[in-house]
Design a protein around this nucleic acid. Structure first.
Length: 403
RNA sequence: CGGGGUAUAGUGUAACGGCUAGCACGAGUCCUUUGGGAGGAUUUAGUCUCGGUUCGAAUCCGAGUACCCCGACCA
């Protein structure tokens, strides 16, 4: 990609109203643009990062047997009435279609996936089953805030699991905790993310949230000083439910993922049953597992940055390499072609502007690896290679670079 | 949804009720520059909307709209 044609414009100034670091940096570097309160456009750079996150999540979920599908955003009122959530779910966006038919924009998809699963699940042989999608969700939050950390429309991975027994649900649930840890590790936030006990487990006592420590977060968690498991303030148990320790560290955090054991909460209203080995009808048990992708992206920026800009973890970097030309010749262009032939995704700064501006923008954008071509490096038939997160740069011979 | 605040050019900002609404960045053209947001010349572009007060409104008043913050809410 030639940077001269990339759809973006970097800003020296942060948007007036930006409070969080991620909002400021992502806007300044041209990843996102606010359309209205809690509604954001993802520009080419931002979309590339979102796609990277999507790829990581898809890979980890499929590793544990998840099958991807795509459910509609437009969901009929009747389904929500069956669970009582047409009225109980305050944040539902409701709208009328032809002939006065009413819909909700999908805020979550238990009401859609459960009756769908009923069309396929008949026997214990059809279980377990793991279905997921990565799709836009709509929630009419009374108050959106902190850039892409809390929005009204957001890309979400929602996974639903279907089981024939409690043991099977428990075992898959544990596997998902590990999957989530791998996902957050690859997205560069594992070191600050805590497994957190939270309310809302309709079937089990607690649900689990994955809370990433940041001042930009809106949740308060108490991290157990002994076992490291956290609990959401909303629980406020005196003793750690895991290890009975009573010393906690209070932290502000943002919820980057959550998992629930739904049990029969949604299978009952939709009559989701299966025939067991002995031929008797039993209720399917469900779990659900969510991750907000945009929020995850914002969270990663929230902790992966410095004074100059974003420092993407390698797997989220919008491009593999930021190639920066500081000389007049055609060498950089040739190197660009060679890197592309090698299969690398390269952002090539071919613009005729000052070196300082190019370097400053490169730091702001935060691509994980930077290669500079200049008279200085060419004298040694080399280029300069530098990781965004490190101070040290090394000279690499051009012939070694492309072999 | 309760409370508070803000609205001036693409962005960030300045202007006592009174002169042609100023500055920086950006963008366009030309020249010079090119390893840390370059210099000169020149051009471009603005008072959220509607109404009111006033000789005169960016400024005061009212309504609307939008955005931000605090709280509540958040399967």
């Amino acid at each position: 990609m030639l940077q001269s044609t990339l759809f973006y414009s970097s800003k020296k100034e942060a948007p007036k109203d930006s409070e969080s670091v991620s909002h400021s940096l992502l806007t300044r570097a041209g990843y996102i643009d606010q359309i209205s309160a809690g509604v954001y456009a993802f520009l080419p750079l931002g979309l590339k990062v979102l796609r990277k996150i999507e790829g990581i999540i898809r890979e980890e979920i499929e590793k544990e047997g998840g099958q991807e599908l795509l459910l509609p955003a437009l969901t009929p009122k009747e389904n929500w009435q069956k669970t009582g959530r047409w009225d109980a779910f305050d944040a539902l966006f409701k709208l009328k279609g032809a002939n006065g038919k009413e819909y909700a924009l999908g805020a979550t998809h238990e009401e859609i996936i459960s009756p769908l699963a009923k069309k396929v699940i008949f026997s214990y042989k059809d279980l377990p089953l793991y279905l997921f999608q990565i799709q836009d969700k709509f929630r009419n939050e009374l108050r959106a805030k902190s850039g892409i950390l809390r929005t009204r429309e957001f890309l979400m991975k929602d996974l639903y699991s279907f089981h024939s027994s409690q043991e099977d649900l428990d075992s898959y649930y544990k596997k998902q905790i590990k999957s989530y840890n791998r996902i957050f590790s690859r997205c560069g936030i594992k070191k600050k993310t805590y497994l957190t006990l939270a309310s809302g487990g309709s079937f089990s006592k607690y649900s689990h949230e994955f809370q990433m420590e940041t001042e930009a977060g809106e949740d308060t968690i108490y991290v157990c000083g002994k076992c490291g498991i956290a609990q959401n303030k909303e629980i406020k148990a005196d003793k750690c439910p895991e290890c009975q320790n009573s010393v906690f560290i209070e932290k502000k955090a943002v919820e980057v993922g959550n998992i629930f054991k739904l049990g029969d909460k949604y299978s009952l209203p939709f009559d989701l049953k299966f025939k067991d080995k002995d031929g008797k009808d039993k209720t399917v048990l469900m779990g659900c597992y969510g991750i907000g992708l945009g929020r995850l992206m914002g969270a990663s920026v929230e902790i992966n940055n410095d004074q100059k800009g974003i420092i993407w973890p390698e797997e989220l970097s919008p491009f593999d390499i930021h190639l920066i030309q500081l000389n007049k010749g055609s060498e950089a262009k040739e190197i660009y072609s060679l890197l592309k032939k090698k299969g690398l995704d390269v952002l090539y700064d071919d613009r005729d502007i000052s070196a300082g501006q190019k370097l400053a923008e490169a730091d702001l954008i935060g691509i994980s690896k930077r290669i500079i071509v200049s008279e200085k490096t060419l004298e040694k038939k080399s280029v300069e290679v530098k990781e965004r997160g490190r101070d040290r740069a090394i000279l690499v011979k051009i012939k070694d670079l492309v072999k």
